[in-house]
Design a protein around this nucleic acid. Structure first.
Lengths: 278, 278
DNA sequence: TATAATACTGACTAACCGGTCATCTGTCAA
DNA sequence: TTGACAGATGACCGGTTAGTCAGTATTATA
């Protein structure tokens, strides 16, 4: 069992330096001073190793931050402690942080990307609940999702800074600075961009097959709410097209384009575009 | 020459879908309907292809945004137009955007990471000059670098959003929303974090000055590839001007303007504008 | 039409990959 | 001293990779 830990530590160093794919099992075992066979006594495959690494560190991150958010002494300090804890964690496990940023969005390994998405969503939820607890309901209602996004943007930008340039950073000042920025945006923004609709879209896994039935239901729902208009007519035609395919692709594309920005039909438009792969 | 473009287009699609390393030359050539040998007639190696892709698109990005910032009608609209142009560009070249985010920070290929850093710095400079032009000196002096970082954070976060979820986005609203957020931070922040010293640290490894020699080389290269046209004539005159300065500034500016949107000469145009500080 | 130049092909090479497995080694209890 | 056995080894396997090159097809030139 000691071996397992040794391998994880050494592999982490190499992955942070070279990336996951670019690091071979051979390299890892050499770096550990063990044989190739010994590696496969601890892990069934290379993929299992990376998944174990993600779990090990992300559980640490997520639970640490979640604990801070839930058990903070006063709302006064909550935001500050959140930023401070997060960046401390990043600094402590900077190798893992690097991997996380580097391999953010590999598409070819399903389990891998799913796991990262899963933890990302967890973190988003934690941030959201923090935001909801920090600000008064009526002042934050419309823009809370934007605030969450901005917080994530700050984190990503400033993490980059000390993950990739080995500069000594004053975490206290950094956290203070970000607390001020976050408060400014949360308390004074009036133009929301990210809506609940958007969030719903992200939560529907991207690769999940969109079925014809789902779309038809959604369209039916929209049609009821819509007033007579070009958009409604377009949507009706698209419904027809779903039931019995007759129109050329160009026309389908045009019809979808017609309803692209219609408030009610936005989601239908999105589903249709995924369905027709346009 | 046509082959080169075909390969670049098709490779871009595959890279965006699977990532750079996960895409083999074989796959690219099959996707193009050409043989493997033909690939190596256009590019010396797979690495050369990816470097060419980066140059091609980053030049487009950088010059487009730089033009907006320099030639906007009023300060009132500058920030809005900046965001709008940037996201439009991202949307138009979403495949390339995906690659850029995915392979952000591969460390094992030196040239690759250097190139991306170089363009990143260029963009940072453009943003900085925009920030300096937007806000009054005394109100922005201390926190301008933080503002630049926040702008970059916003861009990275919200780009992510529409690069990886095929959601219909209202770029107008998005830009408005980000303009407000940027203004809030720029006008009200009091706790700076990033100092000039930080920036110097990051800049250290990069060579800054655009030398006359560099530009001449670039122009020479462009001239070979260009067909007889007003643009080529303009470029020839500009080359002459570089060797022995005789023309008035107004004419130089006009000549540069002539080649601003020429596909081959775009980069030369940009370098010349920096060189002549126009 | 004949010849030269150029564009293109795809079988081939050498290297490397993740993963396997017959073999070996060191440490026990008997 | 023996034998059993978990732990470790590294040569080896099938597969894939980037890159090459001898030879073929196409085009331009005379």
């Amino acid at each position: 069992m000691m071996k397992k830990q040794l391998i994880m530590e050494k592999a982490l160093e190499l992955f942070a330096k070279q990336g996951f794919e670019a690091t071979s099992v051979q390299q890892i075992t050499e770096h550990c001073g063990i044989s190739k066979g010994a590696f496969y006594l601890s892990f069934k495959s290379k993929d299992e190793l990376i998944l174990a690494l993600i779990d090990h560190f992300m559980i640490q991150f997520t639970t640490d931050i979640d604990y801070i958010v839930r058990n903070v002494s006063s709302h006064q300090n909550l935001l500050y402690e959140f930023y401070y804890a997060l960046f401390s964690s990043f600094q402590k496990h900077s190798d893992f942080g690097k991997i996380l940023i580097k391999e953010q969005s590999r598409t070819f390994n399903e389990d891998f990307i799913l796991k990262i998405r899963y933890y990302d969503r967890l973190m988003e939820k934690t941030i959201l609940s923090m935001v909801e607890c920090l600000y008064r309901d009526n002042e934050i209602k419309e823009i809370k999702y934007d605030v969450v996004f901005c917080i994530k943007g700050f984190i990503s930008m400033y993490s980059h800074l000390f993950l990739f340039y080995n500069v000594p950073l004053d975490l206290d000042l950094l956290s203070q600075s970000l607390v001020e920025k976050t408060n400014l945006i949360a308390r004074n923004s009036t133009v929301p961009f990210i809506t609940k609709e958007h969030i719903q879209m992200f939560e529907h896994p991207l690769d999940e097959e969109v079925t014809k039935k789902q779309i038809l239901e959604m369209i039916q729902q929209d049609l009821v709410e819509m007033e007579e208009s070009i958009e409604k007519e377009s949507l009706l035609l698209l419904k027809q097209e779903l039931l019995e395919s007759t129109l050329p692709r160009a026309i389908v594309k045009g019809l979808i384009e017609n309803i692209r920005n219609h408030p009610q039909a936005k989601w239908s438009s999105y589903l249709l575009r995924v369905y027709y792969k346009l």
